[in-house]
Design a protein around this nucleic acid. Sequence first.
DNA 1: TGCATCCGATACGTTGTCGTATTCAATTCG
DNA 2: CGAATTGAATACGACAACGTATCGGATGCA
Lengths: 204, 204
Amino acid sequence: MTTTAEPRITARRRATRDRVLEAASEVFAERGFHGATVEDICERAGFTRGAFYSNFSSKDDLVVELSQRHSEALVDRIRRASKREHAGADEVLRDVFAALADDSRSKERWLVLTTEFTLHAIRDPEARRAWAAQQRRVRDELVTVVDEAVARQGLTLPIPTELFVRAAISLAQGSMTQRLVEPRSLTVGELERTVLPILLGVAD
Amino acid sequence: MTTTAEPRITARRRATRDRVLEAASEVFAERGFHGATVEDICERAGFTRGAFYSNFSSKDDLVVELSQRHSEALVDRIRRASKREHAGADEVLRDVFAALADDSRSKERWLVLTTEFTLHAIRDPEARRAWAAQQRRVRDELVTVVDEAVARQGLTLPIPTELFVRAAISLAQGSMTQRLVEPRSLTVGELERTVLPILLGVAD
DNA sequence: TGCATCCGATACGTTGTCGTATTCAATTCG
DNA sequence: CGAATTGAATACGACAACGTATCGGATGCA
């Protein structure tokens, strides 16, 4: 422990970190956290392992940072979705999950990564604390947004907003997952479209 | 390819297969499919790798058989739960998921394994076909059971039974997952207890 | 322009994991 | 009881992935 001097974060360094992280999210989604080797990630990013270990102390180290970015990006998307005009609570939620990605490829990536992070969190206490905090942030953001939308529509939820949000998250992830496993069994958003209005108490 | 003679399945052979499969389900739950080595599994089962390769051609081979047992066991539990007297649809579902395991340890194991199988299915087309078929069997069984229970209660579901079952599965898995990541944030079954009655149209 | 520093590439030894070939004990069956 | 077969243990070679130590080119700065 000679010095704990943090190396200055030059633009170059930031760029390679970004490229490595982006590559990692692709490879993790494709092969899973354990299945992806450091070499795989570096190859995808166009670097060698030397570059990797110059920027991250380990794969776990990288995962921590990746999961933070992952959650922060989702919070951002929720904020942006809530800015849309005249959006009802169900529309807001649909916007949120629709905005998870531009194409279905990256929506799949988001879901798989979320699942990987969750599994990792279940297994590792340290990761669990971090992931739990991040999930709480996402949920809080959703609660705020839903409360606003519900008030705007003059509705009253039959259950506490947080429970509603938890249910919505479960339904969205569950139907996405089912669609990935059995593509022809469920049309896009069918589950949320039928179930959410009932939970909102606005079954037409 | 001298002979394709299937070796007779003696009692001894069956016993070691069982022990290896049981050990594998533990180790897979703890370390994930990729994270678990064949050696790990054998050590847990009390065998050496020689025994493993005498019984399974590869880890993938073992996974196929394990996922079949996993789903069959769930179908059995659903059948047994449906035999209970005077059970309403929500009670039946709660029985089903309560019966997933005796203790919460093995309920966690069930959830983690299910998630692992799902991820594996998303990534591997061959595994996907098998897993999709198994999921369909589980769902069909649930649909039958729920239909019976609903009729018994003289209710009419506000949505098709299959959608209801899909929603119930998503809710159950989602809330179990949330509980594993944030143990103190959700009391046991709270999500299903509040949401399912609404979906059943019997919000008291 | 020249020097110092940064950062990624290269090269290397180590370890973990795999799958197979072979051995040896147990059991089945004549 | 002896011979044949089955099934798990052992031993081995090959290879993949890791992490580090070192090198060299680029970049910032005087």
